[in-house]
Design a protein around this nucleic acid. Sequence first.
RNA 1: GGUCCAUUCGUCUAUCGGUUAGGACGUCAGAUUUUCAUUCUGAAAAGAGGAGUUCGAUUCUCCUAUGGACUACCA
Length: 510
Amino acid sequence: MSSQKIRVRFAPSPTGPLHMGGVRTALFNYLFAKKHGGDFILRIEDTDTNRYVPGAEAYIIEALNWCGIKFDEGVGIGGAHEPYRQSERKPIYLKYAQQLIDSGNAYYAFDSAEELDALRKEKEAKGEAFIYNYESRNSLRNSLSLSAEDVEKLKSERNDWVIRFKIPENETVKMHDIIREDVVVNSNTLDDKVLWKKADELPTYHLANIVDDHLMEISHVIRGEEWLPSLPLHVLLYRAFGWQDTMPQFAHLSLLLKPDGKGKLSKRDGDKMGFPVFPLQWKSSEGEFSRGYREDGYFPEAFVNLLALLGWNPGTEQEKFTMDELIQLFDLKRVIKSGARFNPDKAKWFNQQYLKEKSNAELAQLYMPILTAQGVKTSQEYVGKVCGMIKERATFVSDFWNLSSYFFVAPTSYDEKVVQKYWKAETPAMLQNLVVQLKSVLPFEKEKTEHAVHEWIAASGLKMGEVMNTFRLCLVGASMGPSVFDIVEMIGVNEAIARIEHAAAHLKFN
RNA sequence: GGUCCAUUCGUCUAUCGGUUAGGACGUCAGAUUUUCAUUCUGAAAAGAGGAGUUCGAUUCUCCUAUGGACUACCA
C-alpha cells in the first residue's frame, strides 16, 4: 500500500432525513480521516431523480454540523474535485461506461423493465431466482446476443436501453475488508448490474460511486454493511477500469438494530418506543413528522458519544469521550463485526452525564426560553442558581420546569400522597408556629434560620421528618427538590411564609 | 430460495489458548439525604448447540441452529 493521503467520503442519498445509523457512518469516516490527518468529503449521491426529496440535502448538512462532524470538501463548501453532487456530474459518467463496453466488460441491454419483471415472476413461481448473468444474458436482448445492426437500430429507436456490466464467469473474487478480513465469493452468484441508463442519461449507484471514488482519490471506503454484497461488483469494476492499484480499502460497518425484536433500526421503532432515530426533527412534505435528538434535548456531544460506542470501543473501560479523544483513539480494526442493538436508556444516561457537567450559566441560557414560554420573568443569574440545584436530578433541559417551577411560581396543587402522609389535624397550628419561628430570626440567613427551626423542633418535641416534609409540601407542593432552607433562601422568606399560609388555609385533614 | 456477514450477562461490550469471564446501561437490595434525585456499596445476570485441534478452549477449524443484510433500470 502506498503512502497516499487518507481521503474518505460520506456519500448519502438525499431521499429523506439522515438516519442515526447514517450519522454514525459519517462519524466513523470523520474520526478515521482526522486520526490520520486526512480529508473528509461530503458527496451527494442523487442519481435517482425519482426518490429525490427537497430539503434532504440541507438536512444532512445541518445534522453533520450539529454533531460537529466537519468536512473538508464537498457540497456547500467546494474543493478540488467539484462538483460534489452526482446530478451535476452527469456528463462525466457515460464515457466511463463506454470505456467498459469498448474493453468488453459491459454491454448494451434492451430488455424492458416489464419483460424483466415478467421473467422474474415466472422464475419466482417455480421457486427459482432470475439472475441476469452468464447463464441468461445470451438469451436476452442485448449487444451480446444481437447482431451489430440490430443493436444500432435499437439504440437509435429506443430510449430505454441500459448498459450492463458483464460479470466474468466462474471466477473466485477475493476481497479484503478492514473489519471483516477476507471475503470470498464466486462470480457466478453475481448479476450483470445496470451501470448506466439512457432514459435519464444517468448512471446507477454502482458506476457513479466507483468513478467518483476514483476521481476524488478516495483511499478508504467506510460504509454500512448493506453494501457488503455489492463489494465483489465494485472490486470487479475497479479491475475492469484498470484501477486496481489505486482501489480504496474497504470497511463495512455493522448495522444498528432495533432495541427489541428483529431487524434494523427504523423510524417506526422510535415512534413506538419513544425515542428519536434522527439527529434533527423532520417534517416531510406529506406532513409526516419525525422527532430529532436535538429537539428532544440531547446535547450533540452526548449524541456523538453514544453513537461512537455503538459498534466501537477503544478496549478500555472509558465510556465518556470528547470528539478529540475519539479522534485520538479511533481504530477501524476495533469496530465490532456484529450488529449493535440500540438502547434508548443508555442514550439518556449519556445525556444526563453531559448535562451534569454543564455550567450553571450555560444551562440557564438553555432554560431561559422555556421559562419565558411559561410566562416567568426572572434574571439569568437567578436561573443559573436554580440550575445548579436541580441539574443532577435531570436528564434533559426540558425536565427543568417540572423539577423547578416552584422556584418561580407558588405551587397550585399538592401531591395527594404527601398530603395523606403528613397533613394531620394539628398541622395548621404547627405551621403557625413555624411561621413564628421564621419571623423571629429575621432578617433571613440560611444557617441561622435552619438552626433556629431545628432547635424549635427539638424543644417542642416534634418530629423532624414531619415538620420538614410538611414545610416542603407547602413550598414545593410535592416531595422533591433540594434542601428546604435552600429553597427558602431562593424564593425569599416572605414568599415562603405566604406559601405556608396558603397551604394552611387550603389543605384539610381527612 | 440463493449469496454474504454475524453469534459473550436483558442491552452495549472487554478478553491478542490458561481469568473467580471484567466494565457500563437497566433491574433489585442496602447506605447517605428532613423529600426527590445525585452519590456510594452490594446482588442477580453471559460464552447458541455439537464435533474436532490442543496438556488446556469463550478464544482456532468444521457442522448445525439462530439472527441480519443483500438479491431493482434504489441507494
